[in-house]
């Protein structure tokens, strides 16, 4: 597969390490009253869609960017590649 890195252009997927569902960005708040349940869901529950999936890839043999790649699980078509940092910020993560 080829991943269109937002900074570096098309790169072979071999340069990347795959992590999984981009929902791992949404780490719950440890101070929540239901933190235990939220962390449980965060860590163990994943969707397995037969279609578009947003997932985390790490450009380990490259510039060490974490990327959010939107990939169709049936066709491997990649429709969007974003810097995970931008995605995290857009989802309200900060410090």
């Amino acid at each position: 597969m080829m991943i269109d890195h937002p900074l570096l252009g098309l790169r072979d997927a071999q340069e990347f390490t795959y992590l999984g569902d981009a929902s791992l960005i949404d780490r719950p708040d440890w101070r929540s009253d239901t933190a235990q349940e939220e962390f449980h869901d965060y860590l163990y529950l994943r969707d397995n869609p037969a279609g578009e999936h947003r997932e985390l890839w790490y450009h380990e043999a490259g510039d060490r960017s974490w990327l959010v790649v939107t990939r169709n699980m049936l066709t491997h078509e990649i429709t969007q590649v974003e810097l995970a940092r931008d995605v995290a910020r857009a989802r309200g993560r900060s410090k």
């Binding site: 992590l19 791992l24 780490r27 974490w66 995605v87 910020r89 993560r93 410090k95």
Partner: peptide, 11 residues
Amino acid sequence: EFARQCLFPDM
């Protein structure tokens, strides 16, 4: 790096 970029992007 995951924590830095994906969890705490403004640190």
